[in-house]
Amino acid sequence: MKIVYNGENDGAFKDTLGATIAGLLEADKDVVYLDADLMSCIGTAKCVKSHPDRAINCGIAEANMAGIAAGLSAAGLKPIMHTFGPFASRRCYDQIFLSGGYAGNSVTVIGTDPGVCAAFNGGTHMPFEDMALYRAIPGAYVFDVTDTVVLEDILTQCKDIPGIKYIRVGRKSYKKMYEKGSTFTVGKGITVKEEGKDCAIIACGLMVAKAVEAAEILAKDGIRVTVIDMFTVKPLDEELVLKAASETGALVTAENHNKIGGLYSAVSELLAGKAPTPIEYVAIEDEFGEVGPQDYLEQRFDLTAEHIVRKVKAAIARKK
């Protein structure tokens, strides 16, 4: 796995979504793609023309879409459904939970515009709790993707993984992180920067590149940190977290999500049971979202490299 991070923007997620979904429909006749009137937002409207029987616009009715996806799975198909994050989680949660998970059906759910990425759509469209909801479904998978390379590979893997899979991903771009064509393993995080043993930052999604940036700032002060990309929030790479905890003795998590129920929770739950370690977090402080440009919102909610730097120093200060 080659890290190609250089601070530059990656391609737009929506282009990768459009191309990957079209490719999966073409490659596997059991794939059915469902959307709730948001195909034009991820470049998949063309799929209705190319695969009219398997690219289905369900209209603005997410609960029904989730139930249909479950029924399609029961008929032996591989449903992939998309809508914005809040509608892919809160709006159809009981249907995903019962018609999907409890009933033993397999559905891949893509929730776009996680957290502050909802920007100008504002608080109604800004999910800070989607990972918490999906983590609470027994056996479900939760991925907060890092870049388009992770997205393409994980989405392709998901179609053949039994159970409920939730992929949260922006529509615009994050920073470029991995070499094109890289492959990833469910349940295995990636050490993207291994500078030293002062602290480890465990980040996901939007925050991975910011963690790398923070590590570079810290290095100038002589603080050496390791950065882990935990795109696989569930199943969590427990081995990698425990290794980082034992090697550094201080951890910081960073996520574009409420501090309740997401990556910070997952890592804390593990550490509390197996290796109590000083841990700090960068996450939403249990607040609702609001409207604004994404860079404003990142400042407003402290989702910045500078804030990660502060939290790393706080974590190190707590070491015995």
Binding site: N64, G67, I68, A70, G71, S73, A75, P79
Partner: peptide, 24 residues
């Protein structure tokens, strides 16, 4: 053929099943 009980949910599941049979 389907897990039901949380009222309303069987309707969409049935739609998916029937549509899946058509696709197949």
């Amino acid at each position: 053929d389907m897990t039901t009980g949380s009222l309303g949910q069987g309707t969409s599941q049935a739609v998916g099943l029937a549509m899946g049979d058509k696709i197949k």
